[in-house]
């Protein structure tokens, strides 16, 4: 079964809906603390898209439905997109584009260090998520590079863990999903 031509454009719009919802909240005055809502919202969705991206391979192995691979790149690019908005919000509103303060934050605050590192590591992944770069790198090298996604996701989760004061229900759930997805890979690799 081949993906229907309308499928990818629909998925694209679907992936934009969280952002639309977040921005709509701003217009509807739904937030007590708007910047926190947008910052946490985009951070959460970056992690959700990373986990979705990582769930494609196990899902394909379980269902044997190879066409799933064709939406993985879209999901990965949306993970990058939400991360980018998340980083820009921090840069503009926490630091007013004031670079010195930004560097102090990155160096002194471990949770920002790992969050920023995760974002930096996403850059080569986003830049090589196109047909031209896959061809240029060759399938195997491209695949090796894109294993960085595991690291990015782990750092993203750590970035969240280090900000927890007491309520860890949400981050615990995300971490368990990540561990589960990695475990599925391990099982496959050792078979």
């Amino acid at each position: 079964m081949v993906l229907k031509p309308w499928f990818k454009p629909s998925l694209f719009i679907l992936c934009l809906l969280p952002l639309v919802w977040l921005v709509l909240g701003l217009i509807q005055d739904r937030y007590v603390e708007p910047l926190q809502a947008l910052s946490h919202g985009t951070g959460d969705w970056a992690l959700y898209f990373l986990l979705l991206t990582l769930s494609i391979t196990p899902l394909r192995q379980l269902t044997g439905y190879t066409q799933l691979l064709r939406i993985r790149r879209l999901l990965g690019l949306f993970a990058f997109f939400y991360s980018l908005v998340h980083v820009l919000l921090w840069l503009v509103f926490d630091h007013s584009l004031f670079w010195q303060g930004m560097w102090a934050d990155i160096i002194e605050r471990p949770y920002i260090t790992v969050g920023f590192l995760a974002f930096i590591l996403m850059l080569p992944l986003a830049l090589t998520s196109n047909r031209f770069m896959i061809k240029k790198l060759g399938g195997k090298r491209w695949q090796q590079l894109h294993r960085l996604t595991y690291v990015v996701c782990a750092l993203g989760l750590l970035h969240y863990w280090w900000q927890i004061k007491y309520d860890m229900s949400h981050i615990l759930l995300l971490t368990l999903i990540f561990v589960g997805l990695m475990a599925l890979r391990r099982i496959k690799l050792t078979k």
């Binding site: 708007p34 910047l35 926190q36 509103f93 926490d94 102090a104 949770y111 900000q163």
Partner: peptide, 19 residues
């Protein structure tokens, strides 16, 4: 004096965008 995990240099007044 920083909190071990974050800076206490700045704050966001609730409802404001900039710190």
């Amino acid at each position: 004096v920083s909190h071990p995990r974050w800076s206490q240099k700045r704050e966001r007044r609730i409802g404001h965008f900039f710190k």
